[in-house]
């Protein structure tokens, strides 16, 4: 991040610094060690991209070509499968459901978790430490563990096969509260005290001082909540049977295969499900990278 990736001409006069090139600055960096390291990185990147390339290539083949002898470049390049996936079937529907569910989850989590984290970090109330302990205990429960009882709970609330049934159980993440709690604690108290002396109430302090200062943390939490929710398979799989209500991951795993496997369509559907987040990543790469570091290191 600190080194601009402008193509610099090789200047062999600079002495090599094989393992800590950043000490030397961005100039004259095409040392033999750098060239070797870059080749290794490129090779590994190719290996990591190969499955995606294969999926893309498959999606551009005809169904018969996909199951004849394997090869990378499609002979009759065709968008047939993409068209079939977009026009027929439920995929556009699932896509919309995914958008609705993940956007709702993200906003509810941001609102609820930031309020709770601020409450824990800055306010006093009876039972605060007990509730904090309860929240920490929740870090050990996941939908994978709670699946069956969570389902019966949602069932008794009458929310099976509804949007709310998909959305609300994803909206109480103890981990996000914890991350924001740590962050709010690290903010200097003096700012808030000064605002209080000037007559601001606690809600106003929260909305006009604390939240604007917390943009990096909030965007990290928001981005991760969105990714987790968009990719969530287990919970929507449990709580929906109605194909019209399914989300992308759920639909392509359960329904799309049910009518016989057409590999190009399966790959086109998969790429379509993954595309939005890849696009988001390309545009918000540095925020996401910082977000991972931030959220990860908060758990340290």
């Amino acid at each position: 991040m600190t080194t601009p990736t402008l193509p610099t001409p090789p200047t062999p006069s600079v002495p090599p610094a094989p393992t800590a090139p950043s000490l030397r600055g961005p100039r004259g960096t095409w040392t033999p060690a750098q060239i070797a390291l870059t080749l290794v990185a490129a090779a590994l990147s190719l290996v990591w991209l190969a499955p995606l390339a294969w999926a893309l290539s498959t999606s551009l083949k005809t169904p018969t070509e996909s199951v004849t002898s394997p090869h990378w470049i499609p002979q009759d390049l065709t968008l047939e499968s993409w068209k079939a996936v977009i026009e027929a079937g439920n995929i556009p529907n699932w896509f919309v459901n995914s958008v609705v569910v993940s956007v709702c989850v993200t906003f509810i989590v941001l609102a609820v978790a930031s309020l709770a984290a601020y409450g824990f970090a800055r306010t006093e109330f009876r039972g605060r430490s007990a509730l904090m302990a309860l929240t920490m205990a929740g870090l050990m429960f996941s939908p994978a563990i709670l699946g069956v009882p969570l389902f019966t709970t949602v069932q008794s609330l009458g929310m099976v096969d509804t949007y709310w049934g998909m959305i609300l159980p994803q909206c109480a993440p103890a981990a996000m509260v914890y991350i924001l709690y740590k962050f709010f604690q690290s903010l200097p108290k003096e700012l808030e005290e000064a605002a209080f002396i000037d007559g601001a109430g606690r809600w106003r302090i929260f909305f006009t001082i604390v939240l604007p200062l917390s943009k990096p943390s909030l965007s990290a939490v928001g981005i991760f909540t969105f990714i987790a929710s968009w990719n969530n398979f287990l919970w929507p799989y449990m709580v929906t049977n109605n194909p019209d209500l399914m989300t992308m991951p759920n639909g392509i795993a359960t329904v799309q295969n049910a009518f016989g496997i057409v590999w190009p369509q399966l790959m086109a559907g998969g790429l379509l499900a993954g595309l939005p987040l890849i696009v988001v990543f390309v545009f918000f790469q540095s925020q996401i990278v910082r977000g991972v570091a931030h959220t990860g290191l908060a758990g340290q």
């Binding site: 590994l44 990147s45 992308m248 991951p249 998969g270 499900a273 993954g274 987040l277 990543f281 996401i288």
Partner: peptide, 13 residues
């Protein structure tokens, strides 16, 4: 980008 991209795909994919 290359190393992290697969993480963004849904488990079902």
């Amino acid at each position: 980008l290359c190393f992290f991209a697969p993480f963004l795909l849904p488990s079902a994919v």
